[in-house]
Design a protein around this nucleic acid. Structure first.
Lengths: 171, 171
DNA sequence: GCGAGTCGGTTTGATATGCAAACCTATGCT
DNA sequence: AGCATAGGTTTGCATATCAAACCGACTCGC
């Protein structure tokens, strides 16, 4: 299932952490908005530029980086002139819950009148606004509020407090 | 429930979108890692600096911005010398699912040997790794894969395709 | 064939931001 | 006094970002 380049966690500036690693790939400005646009069905350079508001040179750089990272793929839709659209890979689709989390957080805390909300089961009578929470697929329980333990592998550093620096009492 | 400043969605560079608005507050480099550190129990400047690896001046700027945004609050823990720690507000705690999403995505796609994983119900025999998904609290169904409709308010622009520009055929 | 327009970028030059390292203030410790 | 620690701020330089101009390949209308 691992199609992307293994990420060198130990090269991260702070603690070796999957969150920091993820942000190295998709945390730069415009990157997540590019993924949003593509997920909305806007696959072309000009559409993504309009939807995000990103400068064209930044957009070009981000698109290349996201393709290299394996989050997007280029897919030709015309040979003359040669034109390609950008589409989500499996990894790209798998990051959409993060965007839904940001959407819900923004709607909850930043406004009384959300410009866009998600509706569940839109055709049915019982359609309702999505009220998302992060839930464990294995046991069905919400992750927030459950007893959760963070388990570290040897490279994982200490979670709380300062790491013990290399001992220098002998110099 | 809205304790933060209402965000001017219409001032965003691209479409007026809660995701973009959220990223304006927490999308800059180091911000989400600062929130991660505080959520781990590292409340002091030097602890956060160590845990994130952020330069001290950047950290200072991010902490101030996050306090202003209402994601963190300063809480004095010593009067002489005057010292404060940084703690999550309700809004700050509410963004942790986004970090869990990034954690899981990084663990899934960036490595075979995650440096840190979340374990559910650690004391019990049935403890297991968290396999999170974004689920609707109202109906209990996963959001991914369900029929979901994006509902726009008037300010929400078109989701797909380019917006119709102001007509200029008469000049 | 010719001019205008579109698409997907790249280049340019000014501005803003990020960075490491040094510095500063207040305090405690001996 | 002399040194150490915490929590920053300042400095000087490097990098990234931005808006705007430019470019090559093509299409369309005539």
């Amino acid at each position: 299932m691992l199609v992307m380049q293994p990420f060198p966690f130990q090269d991260l500036p702070g603690r070796p952490c999957p969150i920091a690693a993820s942000l190295e790939l998709v945390g730069e400005r415009w990157s997540l908005l590019v993924i949003r646009e593509v997920s909305l069905g806007n696959h072309r350079f000009s559409e993504i530029a309009q939807g995000t508001g990103a400068p064209r040179d930044r957009l070009s750089a981000r698109l290349s980086a996201l393709v290299t990272a394996g989050v997007l793929e280029r897919r030709p839709y015309s040979t003359s002139p040669p034109r390609s659209g950008y589409h989500l890979t499996d990894a790209g689709r798998d990051i959409l819950p993060v965007l839904q989390g940001l959407l819900q957080w923004g709607n909850r805390w930043l406004t009384d009148e959300p410009p866009v909300v998600l509706h569940h089961a839109p055709g049915e009578r019982a359609g309702h606004e999505v009220d998302g929470e992060w839930t464990c697929r294995t046991c069905g329980e919400p992750v927030a509020g459950s007893p959760v333990e963070r388990v570290l592998t040897p490279a994982g550093h200490r979670l709380v407090g300062l790491p013990v620096e290399a001992d220098d009492h002998d110099r």
